[in-house]
Nucleic acid binder design. Structure first.
Lengths: 329, 329
DNA sequence: TTGTACGCGTTATCAG
DNA sequence: CTGATAACGCGTACAA
């Protein structure tokens, strides 16, 4: 491995000067161009690459942020979250051991009981959690405005003329469930839309995401069996909606001709589904960008020993109209 | 930050002893249990966490492997690969700077022209590439047996009684395209199945994956327009198959009642599609596991200064029969 | 069985 | 403008 000293020797200067030049440190202003050239040439010639371990050891900076994602698609992950809360702690520990300067946690689904706060807060590492509402002043949070989103969904169907609408709500234990339902209820009040108890189903508490599809399927079957006439279904999320669509297809009910379906999230599959799924989009890219920006601010605050309190933002969702909803004719 | 010296002070021993004990080094065998206990207690009490930078600097090991994934779902990534080959090099450089001890590259889609070999080979870091056939003895490779997979697909349709079969082949520039077609041709020869030129389409060269869906849609429309009667379609991959299904649906052709469709890959969407998609599965978990195992061997070889040459494995695909294919009645 | 001393590669400090 | 020196935290010959 070629070290800074090798470059020093090759260029004929001291390692100090080399360091200053190659890092473009403030002092580099006083170093003549010719010296710089020679050092840079030597470095390039030897293929010098600074040792990040030594650098981090010395500077106490890792230039690294941690990102924790629980991809519930992965059956292994469900285990992670199901089984032991200690796993989360272990992974967090690993990241902290690597001296991450910031942390982004993407909490899709079931961060119900896991009390991240406890472990995370004391780490004093700036952190942003996406998908879970918080009110700490230690950890920032970014969520979609669930209430507004649900409101937009039902409003869309209402505008299309639908009045007999069925609902598949989320599992009670899930934080997103209640605000979404609140959005529906509010709309119902202001618009006069009637909500028929017998056309409201609840997803079971299972934390498995695929179960969301299966449950959507089964609950829709049940809905059909009840023979209450409905012309549209609001599904808790896209996976549920896909289950719903399949159940309808199986029963010979065409979407959207005979029944409209709307989801929530706008997962990648929505656009390629047959029919493509109308849904309420979570602006994930925006949230990601915001998370980064918040994190960078937080990290800078730490570096400059400033105080900076956590931010909590509720992002506006976006209605994405595709093929699965249609005006009542 | 609490250092090993703090633990030494707290426990009353030297930092050497502490290091030996906490790392369970060979010499730890000679250290009395009582000493160990006291050191461990002190470490725990102070919440000691070894500084990985110092450790890596000293031991010259990072205990880290790099994983490069090009998720073509992400529009940003298409840029990465499209634009400049230099990006790949830059990312590789970043990983090498972090002293990864091994490297896994997941090459979904379009690793056509990018000549990883050049950059990667000289890095002398054990590497495994998934999804691209290689024959170097520097870099291991893991791919699915495309020829066999295509053979299984067509055989499945044939067994169901289909004889008039349409094909959407991959882009010519893509490495997977030709072996898959070879599998089809072979089956055609041995079985006597006729391949009708007019029912064979090719995906355009575009590298964008969503275009695979769109192209599948358009080519299927074209296929329908030609009015050659077919009872089944073999799509190049699942995305293409989804496009095909939508086009058929649009044309009022029911899948699988009036036309069977089969894909390739078994992406997550297959199971939740309506109808769910019969496809040829790439055993990605297995490939992942194998990659890790190969990598670990390679890393160990390096540590022990052994020679070890690259492995090249072609994994057997698996036919996953779902709803989109049906026996001709 | 335990401790001293050194080196890993960088960079900050300070002297010249 | 440049260079010597120390220190970051850890692990390990070597000595005791």
């Amino acid at each position: 491995m070629v070290t800074i000293r090798d470059v020093a020797r090759e260029s004929g200067f001291s390692s100090t000067t080399v360091s200053i030049v190659l890092n473009n440190a403030p002092l580099a202003r006083y170093i003549p161009a010719i010296t710089k050239k020679r050092i840079e040439r030597a470095a390039k010639k030897l293929g010098y690459r600074p040792n990040l371990f030594a650098r981090s050891l010395r500077s106490k900076r890792s230039h690294t942020v941690g990102v924790m994602v629980f991809d519930m698609t992965d059956p292994f992950c469900t285990l992670v979250v199901h089984n032991e809360r200690s796993r989360f702690e272990r992974y967090l520990e690993m990241l902290l051991d690597r001296r991450v300067e910031g942390l982004i946690v993407v909490a899709n689904w079931l961060f119900l009981d896991i009390n991240l706060l406890a472990d995370l807060e004391k780490s004093s590492v700036p952190a942003v959690i996406i998908g879970r509402e918080l009110d700490t002043d230690q950890i920032s949070s970014l969520i979609v405005d669930n209430e507004l989103g649900a409101h937009m969904a039902i409003e869309h169907l209402y505008a299309l003329g639908h009045r007999k609408i069925a609902f598949i709500r989320g599992p009670k234990a899930l934080v997103d469930t209640s605000p979404r339902w609140k959005g529906i209820r509010n709309f119902s009040k202001t618009s006069g839309l009637e909500l028929d108890e017998r056309m409201i189903m609840d997803l079971p508490e299972s934390r498995d995401p695929i179960s969301s599809f299966d449950a959507g399927y089964k609950l829709t079957e049940e809905l059909i069996k009840r023979r209450r006439p409905f012309t549209a279904i609001v599904a808790f999320d896209d996976m549920t909606a896909f289950g719903t669509i399949r159940a309808l297809a199986k029963a010979g009910i065409r979407v959207p001709d005979q029944c409209s379906v709307i989801g929530f999230d706008d997962v990648a599959t929505c656009g390629i589904y047959t029919p493509s799924l109308t849904t309420v989009r979570q602006p994930l890219e925006t949230m990601g960008a915001q998370a980064v920006s918040i994190l960078v601010d937080g990290i800078n605050a730490v570096l400059e020993k400033r105080e900076s309190s956590a931010l909590h933002r509720k992002m506006a969702p976006e209605l994405v109209v595709r093929e699965s909803t249609r005006a009542l004719s």
